[in-house]
Design a protein around this nucleic acid. Sequence first.
DNA 1: ACTCGTCTTGCGTGATCCCGCATCTTTTTC
DNA 2: GAAAAAGATGCGGGATCACGCAAGACGAGT
Lengths: 239, 239
Amino acid sequence: MQILIVEDDSLHRSYLRDAVNAALPECKAIFEADNGMIGERMARDHKSAHIVMDLQMQTRNGIEAARTIWKERPDTRILFWSNYSDEAYVRGVARIVPDGAAFGYVLKSASEERLKLALRSIFIEAQCVIDREVRGMQQKSLGQAKGVNDIEYEILIDVALGLTDRAIAARRNISLRSVQNRLQQLYEKLGVYQTSGDGRDGRFNLRARAVAVAFMRKLINYNGLERSEVELNEWLDAD
Amino acid sequence: MQILIVEDDSLHRSYLRDAVNAALPECKAIFEADNGMIGERMARDHKSAHIVMDLQMQTRNGIEAARTIWKERPDTRILFWSNYSDEAYVRGVARIVPDGAAFGYVLKSASEERLKLALRSIFIEAQCVIDREVRGMQQKSLGQAKGVNDIEYEILIDVALGLTDRAIAARRNISLRSVQNRLQQLYEKLGVYQTSGDGRDGRFNLRARAVAVAFMRKLINYNGLERSEVELNEWLDAD
DNA sequence: ACTCGTCTTGCGTGATCCCGCATCTTTTTC
DNA sequence: GAAAAAGATGCGGGATCACGCAAGACGAGT
């Protein structure tokens, strides 16, 4: 067995190396990459089927890397080791994991014990391991109780990218009015009104406000938006 | 001499501790806090005049903490140790550092040598030390060459928060038309048009697009927006 | 003092957004 | 299979936004 570590912070990298060595004595070789780009290449070259990877890296983030790696070899097992459990990240991961693939999501704030346990569970037992906090997040995002539903989420992204209602309608192949309906629900779910209590002033631009709120609720974040931006450009070119 | 370390990642914290011990043998005591809240209190209790602090922390970020610390004791020397050199962070720091105070800004990606050197420079020599990359950022933000000027920046924040033109005008005490003029300049500087080349479609909502672009250019980020949000609420209540 | 450039402000227009009302088509539920 | 809930689409109006045009305000330069 061999393991590939993809992590751009050298401290965290060596911490991971120690943890892997301690938790998986059957591991014969450890490879390391300090960004997603190199990680992809090394995964290909070494045919690594076991990867531990950070989500937020500057040159190429974990989600992008994971997507291409899984595209080439869907049975790869990936343990994401991340600082945050933003809904944007959880959604991002959930969208790209292939059916039946084993993967994990543990936070950097987790104890070393938890990390080691996750390492064994996923790489030896092929089980999925998801941190409690992340799990909570996932519930909220999937269960539509008060959470934003998938279609609404797409609209939200489009709005955040700066598209007009009309453009969104064209992109998603629905009528202009439907886009506005979705937006209406978004405003409600995000708790965006305009009167803010008392009187006439202190008004919000609902569309911009919704983006701000979604951002502060970690529904969208930098990495997610940037990914969406490239998809948008592809669509713009194709059209 | 005693030094206070404020950093929420335990690995980085112990790395910092080692670096301080190695670089500053004259340091008699090291205190540690794992978030900005505790950091503030410890700075007050121990009358720490020498602080090394991370900028991005979950419960209370470095800029907020620094602001209250500097408010109570403006001669405190603070070395910010951060992962990023986003324009938003650089602006945030620049806005709160008191006149004549010694401070530093070094990136976590810097070599250990550079960190130690900065520690001595700021805490022994009372010099300001700013990383090369950060410096470049600062030039761009202050020199108005193509950069966004301070007044425009305020408007940008307000727009990102979701305020309407009228509300911005009220908040900043300028006319509605002036707000729109500023916005016009912002659109230009951010490179926001709507036709995107060919035809009628693929239109952008300029206001939302500007926010997206600013966000992707690191002009605004999560922490900055959240700080601005509380300021906004104070204003809303006062009004 | 006069002029020039930059900034502020008002007016007006067309495009866009927000959203209630009403119709028609799914999908869900029993 | 019918009733009920949820979604899609059109119409229309009031509010907001984007922005050209133009008139006053202010400091800088020769």
